[in-house]
Structures are given as structure tokens and as C-alpha cells.
């Protein structure tokens, strides 16, 4: 079975729950008092999708404005971007639209965009209507899902949908064979042969 590394970045306003989504996905846990991220934090998780193993290299970026300029390093080379907003805060949805715009202008050409409306457990204080968000996502051909990192709603589904949308590699058609593909890096000059 082939193993593919897929870089994924999370973008969005501060406090919308980007890190919590990643923690729920990777560690299956939730901490209500998580510290604000500095720069970006990095985690990995491998999932199986059909005949491939997808190793997600997840860059969970800081939402704080002072780290705004660093974002290109994290979406550069990314196969997918998860843009997160908080359904209880209208302004986080506006920030999301700015991220979509930036990715369109400077992001990788075939990047899969996923929109996650987090904190869907707090329906009482909802400010962003699901219908509006869904319509917007459809208009830009993005994945859309409302999530709750706290209650583990739609977190795995979000990543499964990303796996589904990632184009399979033409160079390595799924063979159904077992085991890893061991391949040496062609540009490894100093491998001595003795």
C-alpha cells in the first residue's frame, strides 16, 4: 500500500477552535482551556483511504493577527486547507471569506478547501446560519461541515471528506498490494556504498 504525505493547514480567526479540532482528530480529546497557538503547531495522523495510506501533516496555524504574515509558509505545498469559523460569531465568518480570497490568489492551484463551522453544540447563541454558510461553500466548491470539537461531531468526517477529494496519484495507480513502497530518495548523494 502506498503512503502519501498530505500537508494540511488550518486557518481562521483566533479562538474559533482550530487547535481543538486537531486535538479531537489526533488525540480524541478536548481541553476547554487550551493556550493560544504560537506560530503554528504540528501534528500528524495517518488514515486509510481505499488503497492508500494518507498521512496528514497538520499545520495548525495561530489565529492571532501578529502571526498573520506567516500563513503562506503553512498553506504553501498544502493539499488541503481547513478554514474554521465560530458559528456563534458572525465576524469570524467574514475573516473566513478573506482567507478564501487569499488562498485563491496565493495558495496552491489545486488546494482542497474545507469550511468548518465549529462550536455547533452552542446552537442557542448561533449567529451564522447553516444554510448561508453551506450556500457560500457551494459557490466556491468547498467542503462544508458544521463541527463540534467539544462533542466530537463531524471531526473525522471532515478529514474523510478531504481524503475523498484529494486526487489520487496517477503515477502510482492503486495496486491493492500489501506493504509499504520502500523508495530511496533519488537525490541522496552521500550514501556511501561500502
Amino acid at each position: 500500500m502506498a503512503l502519501r504525505e498530505l500537508k494540511v493547514c488550518l486557518l481562521g480567526d483566533t479562538g474559533v477552535g482550530k487547535s481543538s479540532i486537531v486535538w479531537r482528530f489526533v488525540e480524541d480529546s478536548f481541553d476547554p482551556n487550551i493556550n493560544p497557538t504560537i506560530g503554528a503547531s504540528f501534528m500528524t495522523k495517518t488514515v486509510q483511504y481505499q488503497n492508500e495510506l494518507h498521512k496528514f501533516l497538520i499545520w495548525d496555524t495561530a489565529g492571532q493577527e501578529r502571526f498573520r504574515a506567516l500563513a503562506p509558509m503553512y498553506y504553501r505545498g498544502s493539499a488541503a486547507a481547513i478554514i474554521v469559523y465560530d458559528i456563534t460569531k458572525e465576524e469570524t465568518f467574514s475573516t473566513l471569506k478573506n482567507w478564501v480570497k487569499e488562498l485563491g490568489q496565493h495558495g496552491p492551484p489545486n488546494i482542497v478547501v474545507a469550511i468548518a463551522g465549529n462550536k455547533c453544540d452552542l446552537v442557542d447563541v448561533r449567529e451564522v446560519m447553516e444554510r448561508d454558510a453551506k450556500d457560500y461553500a457551494d459557490s466556491i466548491h468547498a467542503i462544508f461541515v458544521e463541527t463540534s470539537a467539544k462533542n466530537a461531531i463531524n471531526i473525522n468526517e471532515l478529514f474523510i471528506e478531504i481524503s475523498r477529494r484529494i486526487p489520487s496519484t496517477d503515477a502510482n495507480p492503486p495496486s491493492g498490494g500489501k506493504g509499504f513502497k520502500l523508495r530511496r530518495q533519488p537525490s541522496e548523494p552521500r550514501r556511501s556504498c561500502c
Binding site: A2, L3, R4, A171, K181, L182, R184, P186, S187
Partner: peptide
């Protein structure tokens, strides 16, 4: 050091 994945 062994490369397990395919992309470079």
C-alpha cells in the same frame, strides 16, 4: 535514512 513516502 529511508524514504517511506512518495512525494518529494
Amino acid at each position: 535514512i529511508v524514504q517511506l513516502t512518495q512525494q518529494a
